[in-house]
Design a protein around this nucleic acid. Structure first.
Lengths: 266, 266
DNA sequence: AAGATGTTCCAAAAAATTCCAAAAAGAATC
DNA sequence: GATTCTTTTTGGAATTTTTTGGAACATCTT
């Protein structure tokens, strides 16, 4: 079984059981105790699980959020996204207003931001991110309204636009489905509308994109790359791509994605 | 059994029993006196329990405020709420518009509604419920905007009100923190505002309340009991309470909750 | 004073941690 | 495409830590 799948199944298991011992999990997944232990440890670091002696509980916020797809859990759990998210969260200054665009990479940023314990105001159009941020009392979280597309946690439509158009933020963390030297693009018109509104609402636009997003295009363009003030990506980006971006005069920050399994405690 | 789970069960036990001796607890949980003693000691330190000679009581504030300490949160998704939710979800007709108030019982209704696969339009001010409902493509889900109170999934404030005041729904599933023969009440003014708006927006108001909510009061009143068209509760409601409600002419439906399997104390 | 309850220890059991070698997966080479 | 080599993942053993149940003794309640 794939590690990612195993982890997703752990989440799934916890969602129905609410709590489980490592021994039960190991048996249910038909793998060894050591492996399950490592998986649980990993999921704890991403903030999805809470460890207890002998087992684990689903983190209360995750209990709420993770309903739609276990895949989201494993998506956030990617080491690259975590590293990008951590770097992004480090930029937040006390008292600032920050927009979190919908997406898994921005969700990883939200997870890190929650752990930092810095007081700030957050605005998001993502149910997952809203839940994550509400876990820290120092963060004043606002969620845009809107309708939810089945299978996603993204808020779309007039309700979402209404909130975002009336807003001025210090930073916007934005995700994208694809980007080239010219443009940012995503998969639907509604998504593009929201994202371009976010771009206009923030003084400083920070694009969070893992290296897989570079130099591909998607259906709908929502902004120009030169309008982005900083790009954060992971160290799997080929040097020639990095050079191409930097040649445009756009600051590009490359974060080291930690070797997966271990990490002291941080 | 997991230590965390054992502690959650102690709370659960105290919640229904109001007080219990260490010996009874030990027997109910099938563990030794020493262990239970240590658990109770731990829960006392966290301020959830109050020790007495030979036993323990639930701290009065904890009883009312329902603070979802991580360990306890898992115990809350009780069989009663699921049964109530199932019954509520069965009422939804294809094509209707349904408001889901924020709360754990209404969330249980959302879970059942998602499984039913009936096409309808849902509106909610709860991030959890939004996530749950978005899992079924037949359901058109709208989430109100608003800010999120830390530690909860509830959307509050002007953003939420805006959506709800402009709405007409066929059914509203509403939760409450407490209810008497006269009034429904909850813990904060903002919550009360939202709930009373929901009451006005729906043709048919269905109150989902587990038996523990009856005949107690909370800080803020948000509506009269006679304005409710149907109450769904569980079979632990004392008959005299049920009679008192029915005497007001309010339909009261009592659902059977599956036996949990942890009753060991008279 | 007597019975029950609380304390303070201790040894057994369960779980966590740390390590290591085998297996699997990827990358690079021919 | 097969092959080596490297890296990652996995399962397990030895060791340390935590938890558990109980025994001996102190203390409270009646």
């Amino acid at each position: 079984m794939l590690p990612a799948k195993r982890r997703a199944r752990i989440i799934e298991l916890l969602r129905t059981e609410h709590a489980a011992s490592l021994r039960d999990m190991a048996e249910a997944l038909d793998s060894s105790l050591s492996t399950v232990r490592r998986d649980v440890e990993y999921l704890c670091e991403t903030g999805l699980l809470q460890r207890t002696h002998g087992g684990a509980l689903l983190e209360p916020t995750a209990l709420k959020t993770l309903e739609p797809t276990p895949e989201i859990a494993s998506a956030i759990a990617s080491a690259e996204k975590q590293a990008i998210g951590r770097r992004a969260a480090a930029m937040i200054q006390p008292g600032q207003t920050v927009i979190f665009d919908s997406g898994t990479t921005t969700a990883a940023a939200a997870v890190s931001a929650r752990e930092r314990n810095v007081p700030f105001t957050a605005v998001t159009n993502d149910l997952t991110i809203g839940s994550v941020l509400s876990g820290n009392a120092a963060i004043h979280t606002t969620v845009t309204g809107g309708y939810v597309r089945p299978g996603s946690a993204t808020l779309l439509g007039a309700g979402a636009m209404q909130t975002l158009t009336r807003l001025r933020a210090d930073i916007a963390f934005i995700g994208t489905h694809a980007l080239t030297q010219e443009a940012l693009s995503d998969t639907s018109i509604e998504l593009a509308e929201i994202k371009s509104t976010i771009l206009r609402a923030a003084d400083r636009v920070v694009l969070l994109a893992d290296s897989g997003k570079f130099f591909s295009t998607s259906f709908c363009t929502f902004g120009r790359l030169v309008d982005v003030h900083l790009i954060i990506t992971d160290n799997k980006l080929p040097p020639e791509h990095a050079a191409a971006i930097r040649a445009l005069g756009i600051p590009l920050e490359i974060v080291e994605s930690a070797p997966v399994g271990l990490r002291g405690v941080a």
